[in-house]
């Protein structure tokens, strides 16, 4: 049942629908909360931990994308602690895989790069892990480059929830997780992939890209996924 609640985000009083998450309410009111794994229209998983916010009365942090608003909730999104943690998360993203902006198709139009600029990251203070990663070029149209993957699972959710093809999935555990096609077979041999390209649009970095694109020419439109889901809801 829908109810209206009063919440305070960074001292701003907001009347909000109790069905909504903190992130949705904040975005509707032009309060910026950084995210990576969130894409409007897809189910939220709370995996990137960038959207952590402080709630008054609790020493814990909460992920804004998976926490629903409640009456008299007092939310802080921009404390020094939050900013520090956002920066560490960003640095860990860069240190985890092999993000070499200079040779990437997404250079200049990359959500991860923009995130770095937003948190003011000049250099990565942590040692890089430098894992050996595969590049799957077997698909006639697209490429999957594990080096640039941040494991946000947006491609997986787009494939399952929007296209309904269930081509992508996650394999392994810990720092060794990999996004796989079908049962870890080459993407080109997939029996489920419809080559619709929705995963490409959902991908925030240069991990998924079309072969027709050269370095620095990527132009992605993740909002297309959002738009599509909104239209479906309206039965257009």
């Amino acid at each position: 049942m829908m109810a209206l609640v009063t919440i305070y985000i960074d001292d701003k009083k907001i009347i909000a629908n109790s069905e909504k998450t903190i992130l949705e309410v904040a975005r509707e009111n032009n309060i910026e909360i950084l995210t990576m794994c969130h894409l409007k229209g897809l189910t939220d998983v709370g995996a990137c931990r960038l959207c952590m916010v402080e709630l008054e009365g609790s020493p814990k942090l909460f992920s804004a994308c998976t926490t629903k608003v409640a009456e008299n909730m007092i939310v802080t999104t921009n404390s020094e602690r939050i900013k520090r943690y956002q920066r560490i998360t960003t640095e860990l993203f860069f240190a985890e895989r092999n993000h070499i902006c200079a040779v990437c198709v997404s250079n200049g139009a990359c959500e991860l790069q923009n995130l770095g600029y937003k948190v003011g990251m000049e250099a990565i203070r942590y040692p890089h892990l430098f894992p050996q990663c595969d590049v799957d070029t077997s698909h006639p149209l697209y490429v999957m480059d594990q080096n640039r993957c941040i494991s946000c699972s947006r491609c997986i959710r787009a494939c399952a929830e929007v296209e309904g093809a269930y081509n992508w999935d996650m394999m392994g555990r810990g720092y060794q997780i990999r996004v796989i096609s079908d049962f870890n077979t080459p993407w080109g041999e997939s029996t489920t992939c419809t080559s619709c390209g929705k995963c490409l649009q959902a991908c925030p970095t240069g991990a998924l890209w079309a072969k027709s694109i050269v370095q620095g020419q990527q132009d992605k439109h993740p909002e297309f996924i959002t738009d599509l889901m909104e239209r479906r809801k309206m039965k257009l």
Binding site: A47, T89, F93, E96, P127, L129, G172, G174
Partner: peptide
């Protein structure tokens, strides 16, 4: 903990590995 981490969230996935290496 590195072995047990499921790999879903960044702090645990990368953080435990990073702490282990350090």
């Amino acid at each position: 903990c590195v072995d047990e981490s499921c790999g879903k969230c960044v702090p645990c996935r990368v953080g435990t590995k990073m702490m282990h290496d350090l």
